[in-house]
Simulated scan of single mutants.
Amino acid sequence: MFKSITKRSFGFNLLVVVGIFAVLGLLFFSLLGFITKHGDTLTVPDVYKKNIQEATMILENAGFGVDVRDSIFVDSLPGLAVWEQTPARGSIVKVGRTIYLTVNKVIPPMVQMPDLTGLTFRSAEMTLHSLRLNVGDTIYKPDFATNTVLQQLLNGKPVKPGRDIPEGSNITLVLSSGTGNTENPAPDLVGMTFMEAKETLSASNLGLGTVIIDPSVRDTANAFVVKQTPMRRNSLNELNMVRAGESVDIWLSNTRPEKDSGVVPAPPVEQED
Rank of each mutant, 00 (worst) to 15 (best):
F2L: 03
I5D: 03
I5L: 11
S9W: 06
L14G: 04
V18I: 00
G19L: 05
G25I: 08
F29C: 07
F29V: 08
S30H: 14
S30C: 12
F34K: 15
F34W: 13
I35A: 14
D40F: 05
D40T: 15
D46A: 01
E54F: 01
T56R: 05
G63E: 04
D67F: 09
D70Q: 01
I72Q: 04
S76F: 08
P78D: 10
L80W: 00
L80K: 12
A81W: 10
V82H: 08
W83E: 13
T86K: 14
G90P: 11
G90L: 06
T98S: 14
I99A: 08
V103A: 05
K105H: 13
Q112C: 08
M113S: 04
M113I: 03
P114Q: 00
F121I: 09
R122I: 15
A124Y: 04
E125I: 07
M126N: 14
T127D: 06
L128H: 02
L128I: 02
N134E: 13
N134P: 05
N134A: 12
G136P: 07
G136E: 02
F144A: 15
F144P: 02
A145L: 10
A145R: 02
L153P: 06
V159A: 04
P161C: 06
P161I: 10
G162Y: 03
R163L: 15
P166E: 01
G168A: 13
G168S: 09
L173W: 06
V174T: 13
L189Y: 01
G191V: 12
F194A: 00
E196G: 14
K198C: 14
K198I: 15
E199N: 15
L201D: 01
L201V: 02
N205G: 00
I213S: 11
S216M: 05
D219V: 09
T220L: 13
F224A: 10
V225G: 09
Q228S: 02
P230N: 04
R233E: 12
N237V: 13
V248H: 05
S253Q: 00
T255F: 00
R256D: 09
K259T: 11
S261Q: 06
G262P: 07
P265F: 03
A266Y: 12
E270F: 06
